[in-house]
Write a protein that binds this DNA or RNA. Structure first.
Lengths: 122, 122
DNA sequence: CTGAATCCAAACCGATACTG
DNA sequence: CAGTATCGGTTTGGATTCAG
């Protein structure tokens, strides 16, 4: 398996891809959808602190990248659901790991910050 | 293993941690240091496109979070090296996976974008 | 319900130049 | 070598309001 792309190169397309993944809310959306499609309002509720505007922008960008599919049901009342595509599912694997790392290493990081803070007192 | 932190909660400390990880250049620095400590200039060269200013800021933040250690050698000429701490090493695992995902899925994403672009022509 | 529109503030980032 | 200083521009995010 040859490595054709290198994120360390300034103009490599993978750089752009990595940038998109690193966008503020992408990791939250991917993780929120891990158990299946959700409605817009449900996503807003689940991802606390995100505004409709920003969520919309994130969703649009991810849809454009083929990470998720928007399904519109022509019912009464109307309903829209967002779900991960196969590509999005594959991204879920590493992004779930990142989320889990963040959740499980909070104490160490908070301690490190306090130590740094204390060191600055001198 | 109980889950004490939840990134979906607006005020959870893990949210801040995830934010730091997601900062523009953190993923690049962690990956660049995977094989051992490097000097400042070597990092600037390896991570193409990063400016000294931004790299310095990233390095300082990561040091404060206990992700990396700055070692100053009192030689002539002076030398400074940055290396991952144990905590940083543990973060390398998921972040390397993210980098590899980005590098290996570029074609699919570029195709998806072209499809989206073509669809908008109508 | 699912967003779109608008406005504003802050964060972020790059370019450039300079220092011990 | 290893940064710092300054500046400004772009991007981003939040608040709010409104609409199909």
């Amino acid at each position: 398996m040859a490595v054709d792309y290198d994120v360390m190169s300034a103009r490599c397309p993978s750089r752009v891809v990595l940038h998109r993944i690193g966008a503020r809310w992408t990791v939250f959306v991917v993780n929120a959808l891990e158990h299946g499609p959700m409605r817009f309002t449900a996503l807003v509720d689940r991802i606390q602190g995100v505004t409709p505007k920003v969520l919309t922008e994130t969703l649009r960008a991810m849809e454009e990248d083929g990470l998720l599919a928007r399904v519109e049901y022509t019912e009464q009342p109307p309903r829209v659901e967002y779900g991960l595509t196969d590509l999005g599912q594959s991204l879920l694997v590493p992004l779930r790991a990142v989320r889990e790392w963040a959740e499980s290493h909070v104490p160490e990081i908070l301690e490190a910050r306090e130590r740094a803070q204390a060191a600055r007192q001198h």
